[in-house]
Each structure stands twice: as C-alpha cells, then as structure tokens.
Write a protein that binds this DNA or RNA. Structure first.
Length: 405
DNA sequence: GCAGACATAAACAACC
DNA sequence: GGGTTGTTTATGTCTG
C-alpha cells in the first residue's frame, strides 16, 4: 500500500514528494503491498511486533520526542483532507524528518548510545499518536501507519548505518524497521522476506560472519543465529546519494557550493530544529540529508569499521570504486545515479563481476569531499538560504495514477 | 511497448 | 520439529 497509504488516502497534491520518484530511482510499487491480503495485517502484528524482538536496543535510536511532535503534527499540523496547500506537503515532510532524518545526526552512534532512556516507539509514543487521532481515520491519516516512502534497500541501509557497529543481524534490521516504521508491525510478515531478499540480492549489503563482526562490533544481544549484515563501504556513498535523491529529487536544482564546510562545532541537527521551532521547511530535510551525507562521507575517512572490520574496501587514501555501468552491476541496488540493476537471475549474478570488476568510475576522496561540500551547502540552506521548492513534474503522472485506481 | 527498478510471494536448504 | 536465516526464482506493478 505504498501509494495507497501515502497518496491515495490523500489529495493528489498532498502526496509526499518522495513518491515522485527521482530519475532512476523507482518509487514504491503500488500494486503489491503488505496489506493487500485482506484480514491478515492484524494478526501479523504480534508476530513481528517489538515484543518479540528483545534485541531492539542494539538498533534503536531516540525517537520519542520526535514521535510526540509527530503526534502533534498529526492532530493539528496535517490540515484537513481536501486542502491542498504547500504547507501540507511540508507537513508530510515533517514526518519524514522528525521520524528518521533527525536520527542521522552528526553524533551518529554516540547519540544513540547517549540516550538509552528514550526507547523509540516503546510504549506509548506510537499508541498515543494513534489515540490522538480520531477513530478509524487514525490508521489512514497517521503516517506511521502508512508505508514508508523508502525502498527496502534504503531502509536496510538506514538501519545498518544507525547501528553503533555499522552492522546488524537481520533480526535487528527487522527491529529497526519496526521501530521507525510501525506500518510494518501491522503488515504481513512478507516484508521480512523482502528484507532478506534485499540483503541477499543487493550487492550494497554484505554478510559478515558473526565472529568477525564481533571484532569490530559491540556485543550483540542475539542468539547467535545468522550473520551480521553491513553496508559495503564501496556503496555507502551511493546509497547515501540514493537516500538524498529520494528525499530531494531536485536537490541539485538548488544546490549552491558552500563557502566553507560546516564546522565540527555545529550543533546537531536536532538542536537546530529546536532552535527553529516546529515550523520545518523543506530545507530542513535537505540539511538532514546533508547530515546523512556528512556522516557517511566522514566515515569513509575515519570509520573504525573500515579500519578493522571484515569489510575493508575503502581504506583511507584509497579510491572508492563505484560502478556506473548497469551491465556490469547486476546487483540489487537502490542507487539511482549509477542505475544498478537488480533481481537478476542467479546465472547472470554469478557471471557479474565483483565489486572491483568491470567498468568503473573512480570516486576518489575528492569526490567524497564534493559530497561533503554539497552537504555543507545544504547546511547553508538550513541556515536560512531557502531553496526554491520545485513542483515535481511527476505530479501529473501521480494524478493519473491515483485517478486510475 | 520496453527496460529497469522495486515489491512481494514462494520454495528450499541450512542452521540453531 | 519448529523457527529463523539465507538464497533463489518468479511475477506483478510502476516509471522513464
């Protein structure tokens, strides 16, 4: 129920911008959805709910406050159905930001560990939001109950990147997704299959032996079954870019090179938000994505995981290879700029060259610096340079799609 | 209309 | 034996 959840229940003008797919990055599929099976969602909630996932802490991050704010937004800020103002679109953006991007702060894992008291979605935060909404409209209007606008690849990417150890067992990936997207708690368990499917097929993710993983990871509260999954450092910038583009298809349209990169003393993004109050703007999301990029790019340079982890493809000073040839990259990727194909037959997959094979474009640290600069530019936008919000040209197509239903 | 991207389902094997 | 994990295949939908 991607579009049905995010758009079909809303006026077309309320459809979140991320549903207007950036070039090369397909949006959520409308047709087959976890809730397409009538009657099944409810029963699935218990099976995959947080209660059955005691290891959630390892992938958790503070969300309580943002969820509370989301609750307020759901009650008052979302506007009424039928209104088609730009502000309402921004309200949807608020959801994205406050639920996810805020976690991608400069603090990274430290931030997560630094606030153990706040257990995301534990408890009442989610239920209070639902209860704050009126009756049966809650599920429809509560974005927490709608399918997230991210592909599974990006969800997995975010989950892994949010983990202190930059690697997670599949169970913790489930937990992270459940915590941040309660939609899946009521969705059929097929989404877990999709997660595993992505992990297996997407070359952006790599399986790490648990014994090796522990070498660079914090102790995990798992039963030892399965492997750890991490993001291939080679594809981390690509995934970050995919995430950015998913948020801002028109990012480059308003990009202005920054005069200087943001200082290390810059306040975390959530602090900036606090200073600016609750009126979020689309530039905030750009900045949040910038945080993601900053974090991602910085880890390309100094991530201890890269230094001693089992995946050691991008050590300091070395080049990072990113394939740009779809013929060479028969992988399961969500990264748009190099259109990486996926879901290839196993035979083709076996024939596909490894991450270091094929036609490559060398992405040096200078390129990473460019991304850093771009992220810094986004921070400038956050500081007050408001970008022009272009109306995505897919709107017409979306309207067509909605009307087709 | 086609190719690519993505989601979903299902089968199967291995492991705990 | 049951549940989980991981892999593979197939199929449907949407978008460019």
């Amino acid at each position: 129920m991607s579009l049905r959840g995010w758009s079909a229940n809303l006026p077309s003008s309320l459809s979140p911008p991320w549903n207007r797919n950036p070039p090369g990055l397909m949006g959520p599929v409308v047709g087959m959805s976890p809730d397409k099976k009538a009657g099944s969602p409810g029963s699935q909630g218990g099976a995959c709910g947080a209660g059955t996932l005691p290891e959630a802490e390892s992938a958790s991050s503070p969300l309580a406050t943002s969820l509370d704010r989301l609750g307020r937004a759901g009650t008052g800020g979302a506007g009424t159905e039928g209104e088609t103002t730009e502000d309402e679109e921004l309200t949807n953006l608020n959801w994205l930001h406050e639920n996810l991007l805020q976690n991608f702060s400069l603090g990274g894992p430290e931030d997560i560990e630094g606030s153990p008291d706040e257990h995301p979605l534990s408890s009442s935060s989610s239920s209070s939001i639902s209860s704050s909404l009126s009756g049966g409209q809650a599920a429809e209007r509560d974005p927490l109950k709608s399918k997230p606008p991210f592909s599974f690849s990006l969800l997995i990417f975010m989950a892994i990147e949010q983990s202190p150890s930059k690697s997670l067992p599949v169970k913790d990936i489930y937990s992270w997704i459940l915590q941040h997207f309660p939609y899946f708690s009521s969705a059929p368990t097929g989404w877990k299959n999709s997660v595993r499917h992505n992990l297996s097929l997407n070359k952006c993710f790599r399986k790490v032996e648990r014994s090796l993983g522990k070498r660079c990871c914090l102790p995990l509260q798992t039963n030892g079954k399965g492997s750890l999954w991490c993001v291939d450092p080679e594809f981390r910038p690509t995934l970050a870019q995919a995430l950015r583009k998913q948020h801002f298809p028109n990012t480059h349209a308003f990009y202005t090179p920054p005069a200087s990169p943001p200082s290390a003393s810059s306040p975390p993004h959530h602090l900036l938000l606090m200073e600016q109050g609750s009126a979020l703007r689309e530039s905030d999301f750009d900045a949040a994505t910038a945080m993601m990029l900053l974090k991602s790019a910085s880890e390309q340079h100094s991530d201890p995981y890269d230094q001693e982890g089992p995946i050691d493809l991008s050590r300091r000073g070395e080049v990072v290879l990113v394939s740009r040839d779809p013929q060479q990259d028969h992988n399961y990727s969500s990264s748009p700029p190099p259109p990486l194909s996926r879901d290839v037959p196993s035979a083709r997959r076996a024939q596909a060259p490894g991450p270091v094979g094929g036609k490559r474009v060398r992405l040096r640290h200078a390129d990473l610096d460019e991304e850093l600069k771009e992220a810094a530019g986004s921070l400038l936008h956050l500081a007050g340079v408001r970008p022009s919000l272009q109306v995505p040209k897919q709107r017409g197509r979306k309207s067509r799609k909605i009307s087709r239903k």
